[in-house]
């Protein structure tokens, strides 16, 4: 296979001058790491602060209505779901580095498919808890101020906007992106 040896020599003659120096790369890596950690920490911190505020409200605010307590519990559950989802994604990313290409692609496809179903389900459950929690929570305060209908209508309108406009739009965009990724992964799996 002399001709192939020539091809190999040709291949190895590729200029690698364009590659950054290891020091430069380390700088990029540190910046990348800082950014990734900040984004992840910010999302987790937001969830934890929200959880702490809700727990504080639970003890500090002496509600007279049982609906307020149920509302608080619903909101706590919604925050719990948000934090659990974030943690699951983080854990999966950590375990994905040692597969062979074929296993990695299969795991990636399975993950993406399960993410689609669980994303829809988790978002639905989380949003249902958050919405009913918020409505029940504001009910007591609104009832005391004799603006119960107006306050509840405003909250309900805001929730409806999120549920019927924002959520379907975000979900459609996500589904489209994931469907493209799955299609591409399948195409590569079929070659193996």
């Amino acid at each position: 296979m002399e001709a192939f040896n020539d091809l190999q020599q040709l291949w190895l003659s590729t200029s690698v001058k364009a590659l950054p120096h290891s020091g430069e790369l380390l700088k990029t890596i540190r910046a990348h790491r800082r950014k990734a950690m900040l984004t992840s920490a910010a999302a987790m911190a937001f969830g934890i602060v929200l959880l702490a505020v809700m727990v504080w409200v639970l003890f500090a605010y002496k509600s007279a209505y049982i609906t307020t307590r149920i509302g608080e519990a619903c909101l706590l559950l919604a925050i719990g779901i948000f934090l659990a989802a974030k943690f699951t994604i983080f854990k999966k990313a950590l375990n994905s580095s040692s597969y062979s290409n074929a296993n990695f692609l299969k795991a990636l496809k399975d993950d993406q498919l399960s993410l689609l179903t669980s994303l829809k389900r988790m978002q639905g459950i989380g949003f249902a808890f958050a919405s009913s929690g918020l409505l029940l929570y504001v009910y007591e305060e609104a009832a005391k101020n004799s603006h119960v209908v107006l306050a509840l209508s405003l909250v309900a309108a805001w929730l409806a906007l999120n549920w019927f406009v924002v959520r379907p739009f975000a979900l459609r965009r996500r589904l489209k992106k994931d469907a493209e990724a799955i299609q591409r992964i399948e195409q590569i799996i079929n070659q193996l």
Partner: peptide
Amino acid sequence: ETERIIISLVLEDVHQEEIASIVGL
């Protein structure tokens, strides 16, 4: 796509057993 990776590894002089382990074939 997969053939591109395989031949690139061959040209890099990576052993065939190692290539099999990388791609999962």
